[in-house]
Design a protein around this nucleic acid. Structure first.
Length: 302
DNA sequence: TCATGTCAAGGCGTC
DNA sequence: GACGCCTTGACATGA
């Protein structure tokens, strides 16, 4: 079991997603930004290893306009050594990483242009994992997409598009149950059609479900992951922000709720991404709880 | 220097 | 049809 947090480290004075406006695009700015972003990503990973946080979601913006036609800078070759170095570090420390493309990636859109741009974005993000030399246990995480007033059609369009994806994307793509449109059961239908693993989100399941108890839902989702090809299940963990709109993520880990969740989890082995606003602070606390429970080993002193 | 508006990209729900 | 929300930081501009 690994614990992680997404994209941003609040303790370090750098960002791995620095960018600029499309209107001020230049190859020089791409080169500068990618160099800075990869250097910061490396620092974040070192920090994470020291804290024994071995799961990390890399931000989509490592390469500004990475899938936009304006970007013709050969960043894949220019930064091949840096990507490889990051990947080597990830492997050497037993880490696992993922990407979560933004909401603009909608594979089941009725608009062919949106689908094409979505595929290009997935190809871009998958190519970074390729450059890092990381296998198909490191994932690209998306939602099923929009409803467009017809659930059946929306699901069938996702399945049809999925079957046209490049193998490098398909091998890494996973779908996450969301909090408003596509429940775990919807994702299971997609899984049964094409074999795609389901990245389970406990908080979304609380918001939208078909009556499955949490423990059962976890096991249904975990069974969609092929042990060698996909690795153990990745999941997102969060809880409701007290007093806020339903579906809003909590600002800080509520330890009693996390303990309750671990009871539901039982002996299931998963990698947990804490989608909680204060990032590595809460991830560190979760790590401490699991260490006390003997679920993970203590961090190595370097 | 600081505050604030804005940024490639989608879709849903509300009014 | 317009707008806010998701979720979020940080770029870019103007005071």
């Amino acid at each position: 079991m690994r614990i992680g947090y997404p994209c941003v480290n609040e303790s370090l004075d750098c960002t791995s997603t620095s960018t600029f406006r499309l209107a001020s695009y230049s190859d020089e700015r791409v080169e500068l930004a990618v160099g800075n972003n990869l250097a910061c990503l490396q620092r974040i990973l070192v920090y994470n290893v020291a804290q024994h946080l071995l799961f990390f979601r890399i931000g989509s913006g490592i390469v500004p306009f990475g899938s936009h036609p304006i970007n013709t800078f050969p960043w894949q070759t220019r930064f091949a050594a840096e990507f490889r170095s990051v990947g080597d570090y990830i492997k050497a420390n037993g880490m696992r990483v993922s990407f979560h493309p933004d909401q603009f990636v909608v594979l089941n859109s009725p608009d062919a242009g949106i689908v094409e741009r979505s595929i290009q974005e997935l190809v871009y993000q998958g190519s970074m994992l390729d450059l890092m030399g990381l296998d198909s246990t490191h994932k690209l995480q998306i939602h099923v997409g929009g409803l467009y007033g017809d659930r059946e059609l929306a699901i069938s369009r996702f399945i049809a598009t999925y079957q046209t994806l490049p193998e490098a994307v398909r091998a890494r793509l996973v779908i996450e149950n969301d909090d408003r449109l596509f429940s775990l059961q919807d994702c299971l239908r997609v899984h049964r059609a094409v074999g795609i693993p389901i990245l389970f989100d406990n908080f979304h399941h609380e918001c939208l479900n078909n009556g499955e108890p949490m423990a059962e839902a976890l096991r249904l989702a975990a069974a969609t992951w092929h042990p060698t090809r996909d690795g153990i299940m990745m999941m997102d963990y969060s809880s409701q922000a007290p007093g806020e709109r339903r579906g809003k993520h909590t600002a800080s880990l509520e330890e009693d709720l996390f303990q309750d969740f671990l009871t539901e989890l039982g002996d299931l082995d998963v990698d947990i991404m804490l989608e909680i606003k204060d990032k590595e602070a809460s991830a560190g606390r979760a790590c401490g709880i699991l260490r006390d429970l003997g679920r993970i080993v203590a961090a190595q002193t370097i």
